[in-house]
Design a protein around this nucleic acid. Sequence first.
DNA 1: AGAAATACCCGTACGC
DNA 2: TGCGTACGGGTATTTC
Length: 273
Amino acid sequence: MPELPEVETLARALRPALVGRTVLQADLRWKRTLAVPSPPKFKQQIIGQKIIDVSRRAKYFILHLSSFHLLIHPRMSGDLLVVLGGYEPDKHDRLLLKLSDNATFIFNDARKFGRVWLTADPAPVLADLGPEPLSETFTSSWLFAALRARRRQLKPLLLDQTFLAGLGNIYTDESLHRAKLHPLRLSNSVTEDEAAALCHSVRAVLEEGIRRNGASIDWVYRGGEFQNHFRVYGRTGQPCPVCGTAVERITVGQRGTHFCPACQPISPPGDST
DNA sequence: AGAAATACCCGTACGC
DNA sequence: TGCGTACGGGTATTTC
């Protein structure tokens, strides 16, 4: 579930409790959670490291340590928290870091999809990611050129992290609805104005998600309230907030896809076909 | 190149 | 109530 806004919210919320503390013990409770390096090396490398900073890239949560970077990708059901004082591990905790001042950093992940990397150089792990949608490099002119350069359906393309980094199923559906673009529209059919609208919508949806502290669907991430403001996601059969037409749900590339058939026609405006 | 299928997982919702 | 099963979600991998 965590997409860009949820990971950003976690990074902002946990930063004050993490920065400055030192890793005293590491407890890896499910070995496949660790992508890199081997478990013995992991423990040896991370113990004694001081947390210098906390950040995010795409959906990766990043701990900047004295000599390493700890990257955590929560995938679907991963959750992060810091507990001050005593802590009794949960059944689904995958990695526990005991920190100085009696704090514990916890990576909990019921579905075991999440992965963790400990590396001196995070660049190779992040190498294939597309631009950050909230950065200055994500402009309507870049998006227009990038869309025209490919011939793919918009929904799978926006979910492709090498095209644009950070959107998941929810924010993609919401972005396409706000831009009035059908999820099956081919990327090379998008006009300059539509690309500008999509660029603006992606930013607006992500910013609203962050402003509302993320979405709390799928029982995992708590705290946010953006789920109360979805316009199409998970609203199959309910009225589109813009025009009142019932929201439809189709499957695109094995993903549930929600859209308003009236606001998001399959054909570009003016195209009688 | 890109589409499609598959694997990885398990809490939840749903049907009986 | 309890049991069985389909489902969803992000991404790596494989196959077409």
